[in-house]
């Protein structure tokens, strides 16, 4: 079977400005795909083109192998459930009645029957069983969001397209949503979920694509998006010897000394001088290392680990070299930093 979702050269321009710009994207079946990007990056526009709501200016998009043409009843969309921006309902009807009418609104008779048969099930899945009789007018934003998910699930879809599904949910609701999406993906559903919240996609998704200015600037498993691997902060009694001891361990890179805590410019890799013997990079580059500082004051080193190196190995190496390790802390470079690096200063909505 081919890709669940595929975009090729997909472009949408509004008044000469490209909201989605020559986007190539492939989502394999059964993947939980996080479509990450700042507001205005083109996430919703992409999803709308996938659903045939808007016309592409150029390129094409395929869902389950079928090309999507707006205005036509695209058969593949029968197997797609969607949440596009806010979950909108007929506010004068109850939650259940809304689902019923959406279930009956269109499609072949067998689809409509199948959807109607799943009403109670999907209401239970999103935890709205008890509130289903209330008018949507009286729903909280979180409840509407849940009802929107329920509507997307009505057709037992093979592909779920969810635009910011955790909007308006409380932390517990977000955790439940994440678990639900994971469960669906594990059951073989392709879940394509857009978000501007990094934590969400980092925890839950198999693959993350980062969109900015309508272009995909990075794609891969969340762990691969960190360019520098895992980071470790180690406090030892003699940093100079520690550096020497670690120099031979495969997969361990010792950064230049970090600036003191709280100091600005704590972005070590590129800016700091690279002489490993330097105890204080701020000092005017002395050419003779070692003796000027005995190196006996405890100091922190920052390490970057790439597989197969592990923290335990670092510790063992240091202890074997007779060093006293007083602290060893994993330091995650947050995906947020990676994200901000990727999207540059485009995180302000245009």
């Amino acid at each position: 079977m081919g890709a669940a979702l595929a975009a090729r050269g997909l472009t949408k321009a509004y008044g000469g400005v490209a909201a989605v710009d020559d986007l190539d994207l492939t989502v394999e079946p059964g993947t939980l795909y996080g479509f990450l990007g700042p507001n205005g990056a083109g996430k919703t526009t992409t999803i709308r083109m996938m659903l045939g709501l808007i016309h592409a200016s150029a390129g094409e998009v395929e869902v389950l192998g079928e090309r999507v043409t707006p205005g036509k009843g695209v058969a593949a969309l029968r197997r797609v459930g969607a949440l596009v921006e806010e979950p909108a309902f007929w506010r004068y009807l109850s939650g259940r009645k809304n689902l019923e009418y959406f279930a009956r609104a269109a499609g072949p008779a067998e689809d409509r029957r199948a959807r109607l048969g799943r009403l109670d099930e999907v209401l239970d899945v999103v935890g709205l069983g008890d509130a289903a009789g209330k008018k949507v007018r009286a729903y909280s934003q979180g409840m509407r969001q849940r009802l929107g998910i329920a509507r997307a699930l009505l057709g037992a879809p093979d592909v779920l397209l969810l635009d910011e599904p955790t909007n308006g949910l409380d932390p517990q609701g977000i955790a439940e949503m994440r678990a639900l999406l994971r469960r669906l993906a594990d059951g073989g559903t392709t879940v394509f979920v857009s978000s501007h919240l990094l934590a969400e996609v980092e925890v839950a998704c198999d693959v993350v694509g980062v969109l900015t200015r309508g272009k995909l600037v990075a794609e891969g498993p969340p762990s691969n998006l960190r360019p520098s691997g895992d980071r470790l902060r180690v406090t030892v009694d003699d940093p100079v010897r520690a550096r020497k001891a670690l120099a031979d361990v495969e997969g361990v890179t010792v950064d230049a000394d970090p600036a003191p805590d709280g100091a600005p410019g704590d972005r070590p890799l590129a800016a700091a001088p690279s002489d490993p013997a330097l105890a204080r990079p701020a000092a005017p580059a002395p050419s003779d290392p070692g003796p000027t500082r005995p190196g006996l004051a405890p100091a922190a080193l920052r390490l970057t680990l790439t597989r197969p190196a592990r923290a335990a190995e670092v510790n063992a190496t240091l202890v074997a070299a007779g060093l006293e390790v007083s602290e060893l802390t994993p330091e995650h470079e947050s995906l947020e930093d990676v994200f901000l690096d990727l999207v540059g200063d485009d995180h302000v909505p245009r």
Binding site: L51, G52, L53, V80, V84, A88, F102, A106, G107, R151
Partner: peptide, 9 residues
């Protein structure tokens, strides 16, 4: 939009 993605012509 939710009506149209049912999908329906």
């Amino acid at each position: 939009r939710y009506l149209l993605v049912r999908p329906v012509r």
